[in-house]
Amino acid sequence: MLRYVALKVGRALFVVWAAFTVTFVLLFVLPANPVDLLFDPAEINAIPDEVKAQVAANYGFNKPVVLQYLDRFGHAVIGDFGNSVQSGKPVTRAILDVLPSTLVLASGALVLAVLIAFGIALVATATRRPWLRNLVEALPSGAVSVPVFLSGILVLQIFSFRLGWFPSFGDDGVRSLILPLITLAVPVAGPIAQLLVRSFGTELHSGYVTTSWAKGATRGSILVRDVFRNASLPALTIAGVTFGNLIAGSVITETVFARQGIGRMTQTAINTLDVPLVAGIVVLVAASFALINLVVDLICPVLDPRLRATLTTGGTA
């Protein structure tokens, strides 16, 4: 058991370290002249070489790559990713400033998405009308097919400009949160719903469900007592993918609705080539991803007695 936990924690730490390294290579090693990335491409030729050299020295670009790497890594371990080029604020500070706003949006959207997904799966499994099942089963693939920037604009157009129910832009209060929440929840719900529809269907036709029918159980009680838990477990396995969808979705959503947050900050950081900030964000995202997968790996044995058994008898995962 302890071995299992240690293995999973080790794997998570490795992912974070490797993500840092990949980012370092991408942003600081691969570009022929990393200093150029720090300036606006339009003005790059107008900048005197002394200034460039000065900046390069400030960022440590004149040192050997290995030293640069070790230096940055050493600082990153204690949470120091340097200063943002644009704002001059420490990267960690800049991220922490906008993090709450994204957290509220993302967690709200996640809750909504999970509700939508379960709703779809339950209706698709419980209904005995083929046309309704076909309709409901088509929803998830529609949800992942409509680009977020389009659904955002559609939602804005209908509920803000036409009906005037909600404010269109900005980030004050709950009312301004509703539209971004819906926009973000729909594409996140899609893959979860697809998975759940499939696993609810499989579980409904499994052997133990037949046993339950034979016991004299009704359809409702079979769905609630037998199918629900077994069919929901697989949803945990795509927690990481869901997180990725939330991040990608919030980049677009925050841009469309002009909200502040990690997503919008990422876009600005990339646009302005704010390399330290980009590196910080990527490592933060990878670390969150690793953490989520770690939690899932540790929770699964709690929820599934079979996994628990293979762990206690000393099997590897």
């Binding site: 794997r11 490795f14 992912v15 490797a18 993500a19 990949v22 980012t23 991408l26 942003l27 691969l30 570009p31 990335l37 990481g240 997180f243 990725g244 969808n245 991040i247 990608a248 980049v251 990422t266 876009q267 990339i270 080539l273 980009v278 964000i281 990527v282 995202v285 990878a286 991803f289 690793a290």
Partner: peptide
């Protein structure tokens, strides 16, 4: 597969943005 894990840990839109910026 450990290397693949790392690339899966960075959402593909974010990774694509970084690559384009480079």
């Amino acid at each position: 597969m450990r290397v693949v894990d790392v690339f899966l840990a960075i959402p593909s839109l974010l990774l694509a943005m970084v690559i384009v910026s480079v």
